[in-house]
């Protein structure tokens, strides 16, 4: 099967007065139709910048400097054509016709991502009208239907509500309804559950899984929460400091982690089976400062398997180690 989205060697840099921040520095991954890909990593690892690069939402002083973002675009007649999003003008018509229509975003802060002075109905209808040639009445009907679909009680009345009048969970539901407005083929969820409490979080995840199944969408799910990844993802991409450390199906990542970073990350999850009184292992050190990235493998200063003269001199590339997993580490060279 051909991937829906294929990211190759993506590099996104931010050119600041103080220096260049290499927020994304060579990222590769694929998303297949109907698949849920989880991108996981600590804050600052470049996961949000990666997906914003895919949508070409990076603003000055940031720029997508290198790499391919191959997307299987489907035109109105249903014909498919692969286009490289990285080559498009970020303000141009071509990318705008893809954003929202074929690739939709669920942002991390539903509160701040709705305009507080426009009703949610207005904003959802706008999403419909931007990409579909329908009348206002029809757009309204579609919007209400979408709200109904995401489990919004009284959708017709809620059309007139402002985002700050809704609870956190309902607000995120409204946001999901807006993202689904045009039946996207790829949904990007950027930590959609960080801003809401745990019980609502579970409901929202359930809802996302249901919707994914109904619409048969591909989903990229970004989070720093390994627990959420285990619940939702089919395939996992582990990122650290702008680079992909390891990729693989969710079971393999959790049960047979290969990269020292993935291993360390999994070890630092508290377990109810751990003997009482035992200290939770943590990853030594902290994420380096963005201006002073280590040369070579970005993880070597904190790595238990650090090989002096190897890890700090050249950068490992992401290579498949079996038919499912790929790792970028010199241990597997």
């Amino acid at each position: 099967m051909e991937p829906l989205l294929s990211v190759r060697g993506l590099k996104t840099y931010f050119y600041l007065d103080e220096g260049t921040v290499k927020a994304v520095d060579g990222v590769d991954f694929d998303v297949f139709p109907g698949q849920i890909v989880g991108i996981v990593g600590e804050s600052g690892c470049g996961k949000s910048v990666t997906i914003k690069s895919v949508l070409r939402l990076i603003q000055n002083p940031g720029r997508v400097v290198e790499g391919e973002i191959l997307f299987r675009h489907q035109d109105e007649d249903g014909r498919e054509k692969t286009i490289d999003l990285a080559q498009l003008d970020p303000h141009g018509k071509a990318i705008r016709s893809i954003r929202g229509a074929e690739i939709a975003l669920i942002p991390q802060e539903p509160m701040a991502s709705f305009s507080p002075v426009h009703t949610i109905g207005d904003q959802i209808m706008e999403a419909v009208l931007l990409h579909q040639d329908v009348s206002k009445e029809e757009a309204r009907r579609i919007s209400i239907e979408r709200l109904h679909e995401v489990g919004m009680p009284n959708p017709e009345q809620r059309m007139k509500a402002y985002s700050w009048e809704l609870s956190g969970g309902l607000r995120q539901r409204a946001m999901i309804a807006m993202s689904l407005a045009c039946n996207p083929r790829l949904l990007i969820a950027d930590e959609p559950t960080t801003a809401i409490d745990v019980t609502t979080q579970a409901q929202v995840l359930r809802l996302l899984l249901d919707l994914q199944e109904q619409h048969n969408m591909a989903v990229i799910f970004i989070t720093h929460d390994l627990g959420v990844i285990a619940q939702i993802a089919d395939f996992v991409v582990v990122m650290y400091l702008g680079r992909v450390m390891e990729t693989g199906p969710v079971e393999d990542i959790f049960f047979h982690p290969q990269h020292p970073y993935t291993k360390a990350l999994l070890e630092s999850i508290p377990s109810i089976y751990a003997p009482a009184g035992e200290r939770l292992p943590t990853i030594e050190g902290s994420i380096p400062h963005p201006f002073s990235r280590p040369s070579g493998c970005p993880f070597y200063p904190r790595c238990k398997a650090f090989m002096p003269g190897v890890c700090n001199t050249s950068t490992p590339q992401l290579k498949p180690i079996n038919d499912r997993q790929a790792v970028s580490c010199f241990l597997y060279d």
Binding site: L55, L57, S97, A101, L105, Q108, L130, H131
Partner: peptide, 11 residues
């Protein structure tokens, strides 16, 4: 963020 969201909608 709502500006970015509007961009992500394709406006």
């Amino acid at each position: 963020p709502y500006v970015e969201m509007a961009r992500a909608k394709g406006m």
